[in-house]
């Protein structure tokens, strides 16, 4: 069943690593570019030695979870953003004709191995954060430490798919998805106490970005949410990720059914 997908995937990786020097430069700089986010958080943090009432080790833990989940999602399904090219040119017809899942085809056809560098970078940050933060180790926390980045990745992946699907209706609004994918990544890396007003209610709790890194980090640290979210909610990120993934999947199906090709 998975054979054709793995063939597509390996073909893609082989073709993209063919020009080794160019690939190396791409890999290097796309990793450097993402470290700019980290530099930003660090610069802001170092002004006063705290961010939103949290110390450096706590903030680093949140940054670490976000820095691992986002690249995982970007590596796995980030290409779905290219759907608008497929819809605009009508290439999506060919995708639908093949007896394979359209979504998985899209993701494997443009797989970008250069994004793997960021996953390595994110893993390193997460491990360093875990070693330094005052984590209240217990079997349940161990479980959460392993599950949180995966749940975060599923969450971001769902966001990628959800906003890419909009291209079935409006082709040119692609940049809106950046607000929620890259914007959501930025929001997730900070303690939610930093934000305020309806923006926090909408982004952090309404859309669920607090569940990516902030709430799991609080659970690992054994700290209650200063914003008053009940303690058990801190453990719910896998459930929210699943819920968002289901919603994105349903939206995707609606979008595919809505597709009308380009005409002649």
């Amino acid at each position: 069943m998975a054979k054709p997908y793995s063939k597509l995937l390996t073909a893609q990786i082989r073709s993209q690593t063919q020009y080794r020097f160019s690939f190396g430069i791409d890999l290097f700089f796309s990793t450097v570019l993402t470290s700019l986010d980290l530099v930003t958080v660090w610069v802001l943090f170092s002004v006063n030695g705290s961010l939103g009432g949290f110390g450096g080790r706590e903030v680093l833990l949140m940054v670490g979870i976000a820095a691992l989940s986002f690249p995982l999602a970007d590596l796995a399904v980030g290409n779905v953003e290219r759907l608008r090219v497929f819809v605009r040119t009508g290439l999506f017809d060919a995708v639908l004709l093949r007896p394979l899942s359209p979504l998985v085809q899209l993701v494997t056809m443009d797989f970008a191995p250069r994004r793997a560098g960021r996953v390595v970078q994110g893993t390193v940050i997460y491990v360093v954060a875990l070693l330094n933060a005052p984590v209240q180790w217990s079997p349940v926390v161990w479980g959460l430490v392993l599950v949180a980045p995966i749940a975060g990745a599923v969450f971001f992946g769902a966001v990628f798919v959800f906003f890419a699907t909009v291209a079935f209706w409006w082709i040119d609004v692609g940049e809106i998805s950046n607000a929620f994918t890259y914007g959501g990544k930025d929001v997730s890396a900070y303690p939610m106490t930093v934000f305020g007003g309806w923006f926090r209610r909408f982004f952090a709790y309404g859309m669920g970005f607090a569940f990516v890194a902030y709430l799991p980090a609080l659970a690992m640290l054994g700290r209650p949410d200063p914003l008053g979210v009940p303690d058990w909610v801190r453990w719910c990120s896998p459930l929210t990720a699943l819920l968002v993934a289901v919603l994105a999947g349903l939206f995707w199906r609606t979008g595919v059914r809505h597709y009308r090709s380009t005409g002649s």
Partner: peptide
């Protein structure tokens, strides 16, 4: 490209909120 202009302005605005809140939170101390 009106859709693209709208989308770009929307995205800049969302990032505006994110950056504004983070800088204000730093300055609040």
């Amino acid at each position: 490209y009106r859709q693209a202009t709208f989308a770009g302005a929307f995205t800049n605005t969302v990032f505006g909120f994110v950056r504004c809140y983070t800088l204000l939170s730093v300055a609040a101390v």
